[in-house]
Simulated scan of single mutants.
Amino acid sequence: MTPSHTNLATGIPSSKVKYSRLSSTDDGYIDLQFKKSPPKISYKAIALATVLFLIGTFLIIIGSLLLAAYISKGEAGRAVPVLIIGNLVFLPGFDHLCIAYYASKGYQGYSYDDDIPDFDD
């Protein structure tokens, strides 16, 4: 007497499972597996880029006003570090906002998946 085999996934004995032969025109692929899924938009990364852009813009404006001595007289020495920090914060924010804009408009070579980091864990 041979032991009966059971399909572990469904619990159905293998003697009751019906198999059918694939058609000769079927190459084993379906169209759905080649369909591109919609891009996953990372709203956290775009929000961070917006915050960096706004802080950088604010620091550049303040640094320019300090350098022109419009805010306070004799404080031009503080303007250079503020301008440097403003540029270091502004540039990545501006870059990522441009990439997000071009990706949203569908320009060739820009995508959310490849160019914008995903912070969702």
Rank of each mutant, 00 (worst) to 15 (best):
Glu75Phe: 08
Ile71Asn: 00
Leu83Val: 07
Gly86Pro: 04
Ile71Cys: 04
Leu65Lys: 10
Ala100His: 03
Lys73Gln: 12
Pro92Glu: 06
Val51Asp: 02
Gly93Thr: 00
Val89Met: 10
Ala69Gly: 15
Pro81Lys: 00
Pro92Asn: 03
Val80Tyr: 09
Gly56Thr: 04
Ile41Asn: 07
Glu75Arg: 09
Cys98Ala: 14
Ile84Glu: 09
Phe90Met: 04
Tyr43Cys: 04
Pro81Tyr: 00
Phe58Asp: 07
Gly56Lys: 01
Ile61Asn: 03
Phe53Gly: 02
Val51Lys: 00
Ala49Phe: 03
Val82Gly: 02
Lys44Gln: 13
Leu52Glu: 14
Val89Glu: 04
Leu54Arg: 01
Ser42Glu: 07
Ile62Glu: 13
Ile60Cys: 15
Ile55Tyr: 08
Leu65Gln: 12
Ile46Trp: 02
Thr57Trp: 07
Leu97Lys: 01
Ile55Gly: 02
Ala45Ser: 14
Ser72Asn: 09
Cys98Trp: 07
His96Lys: 13
Val82Asp: 07
Val89Ala: 09
Leu52Arg: 06
Ala100Cys: 08
Ile41Tyr: 10
Tyr43His: 12
Phe58Leu: 12
Ile71His: 02
Cys98Arg: 12
Leu66Arg: 01
Ala47Gln: 09
Ile71Phe: 09
Ser64Thr: 14
Ala69Gln: 15
Gly56His: 01
Ala100Pro: 10
Leu67Asn: 13
Arg78Pro: 04
Thr50Met: 07
Gly93Trp: 04
Gly77Pro: 01
Tyr101Gly: 14
Ser42Val: 07
Ala79Leu: 06
Ala49Cys: 04
Gly56Ile: 02
Leu65Cys: 14
Ile55Thr: 04
Ala47Gly: 12
Ile62Ser: 13
Leu59Met: 15
Pro92Lys: 03
Ile55Asp: 06
Glu75Tyr: 15
Tyr101Thr: 15
Ser72Pro: 00
Ala68Glu: 07
Phe90Ile: 00
Phe58Ala: 15
Leu54Asn: 02
Phe94Gly: 06
Ala68Ile: 11
Pro92Leu: 05
Ala45Leu: 00
Tyr101Arg: 05
Ile61Gly: 14
Val80Gln: 09
Glu75Asn: 07
Phe94Asn: 03
Val89Asn: 05
Gly63Leu: 00
Ile85Asp: 01
Ser42Phe: 05
Leu65Met: 15
Asp95Asn: 13
Gly93Ser: 06
Val51Ala: 10
Ser72Arg: 06
Thr50Ala: 14
Tyr43Gln: 12
Pro92Tyr: 02
Leu66Glu: 08
Ala100Leu: 08
Leu52Lys: 09
Asn87Pro: 12
Leu91His: 06
Ser72Phe: 11
Ser64Ala: 15
Ile62Thr: 14
Tyr70Lys: 08
Gly93Glu: 07
His96Asp: 11
Asn87Gly: 14
Tyr70Met: 05
Ser64Asp: 14
Ile55Pro: 01
Ile55Met: 12
Phe94Met: 10
Ala49Gly: 03
Tyr70Ser: 11
Thr57Glu: 08
Ala79Ile: 06
Leu91Tyr: 13
Leu65Pro: 08
Phe90Cys: 01
Ile60Gln: 11
Gly56Gln: 04
Leu91Met: 13
Thr57Gln: 06
Leu97Met: 12
Gly93Ala: 03
Ile55Arg: 01
Gly74Cys: 00
Cys98Ile: 14
Ala100Asp: 08
